[in-house]
């Protein structure tokens, strides 16, 4: 059950043009930055990317957008990226904006083996157009389908060689639900340890969901909005 690969390039070597990828992270926090760099160098194109955000111009998924490797983005919030906005307004990039909770729960459904979920988010708005609505206990809910992604790419804090993962702080965000949702899941970690070194009670993502794991070097972990207070 050794899932370790040499690095990001080996991890992505069978990702093909036109595939659908899930990418963990919220803004730039908990982003699989090493795998994204490898994708940016790979030339793989026509990707559909499911990710809460689209990175910034020169970091994260913004790198893939700049290289025109992305055909379609499925996200909940895409501010902070001028190149994204330009491609969207010019029609070069297809974009599906969906509520954040719907995005997370469609990942969760895939990881739990459920075909669809019902959520009230988007009822009465353009998000509901063309979707089945069911009424439960007097309230309307939209039927939203589980995602079907070829690869999920996540970032964890620690992982063991069997693929068990532990996340750190709010860098957890979408990573655990996306890790569960990919047909193939790639995990990049800051620390790679031997089986037994992680407490089984503290594991967030069981290794059964993870197919490839590698240790990333020199994480940049860029901060999007540095907000501080002065020491008194």
């Amino acid at each position: 059950m050794n899932k370790v690969v040499s690095g990001a390039h080996e991890a992505i070597n069978d990702i093909k043009d036109g595939m659908t990828l899930m990418l963990g992270g919220f803004g730039l926090c908990g982003l699989p930055e090493k795998t994204i760099l490898a994708l940016a160098e790979s030339g793989i194109k026509d990707l559909t990317c499911i990710s809460n955000n689209a990175g910034v111009d020169d970091f994260g998924i913004g790198l893939l957008l700049r290289n025109r490797q992305v055909k379609k983005m499925i996200s909940s919030y895409v501010g902070e990226n001028a190149e994204f906005e330009r491609q969207l307004l010019s029609g070069e990039l297809e974009v599906e904006l969906i509520p954040q909770g719907t995005l997370a729960t469609r990942c969760m459904a895939a990881g739990y083996g459920m075909p669809a979920i019902f959520t009230p988010a988007g009822i009465g708005t353009e998000v509901a157009e063309g979707k089945e609505i069911r009424n439960f206990n007097g309230k309307d809910y939209l039927m939203e389908m589980a995602f079907d992604a070829d690869f999920a790419i996540v970032k964890a804090w620690k992982g063991d060689t069997m693929g068990n993962l532990v996340y750190r702080s709010t860098a957890r965000n979408f990573n655990p639900v996306m890790a569960m949702a990919g047909k193939v899941t790639i995990a990049e970690v800051e620390e790679l340890v031997e089986p037994g070194e992680l407490d089984p009670d503290h594991i967030h993502t069981p290794g059964i969901y993870v197919h490839r794991i590698f240790k990333g070097e020199n994480y940049e972990k860029r901060i999007e909005q540095r907000t501080v207070r002065k020491k008194q």
Binding site: L28, C29, A171, N173, E224, T227, V228
Partner: peptide, 27 residues
Amino acid sequence: ENGLLGMGPFPFEGEEDPDTINAGKQT
């Protein structure tokens, strides 16, 4: 909503943690 209950104030200068942000992406 990015995944935290018990959000505290902004960190002191020099104590920012890139792994700890709010829904507005602020440290």
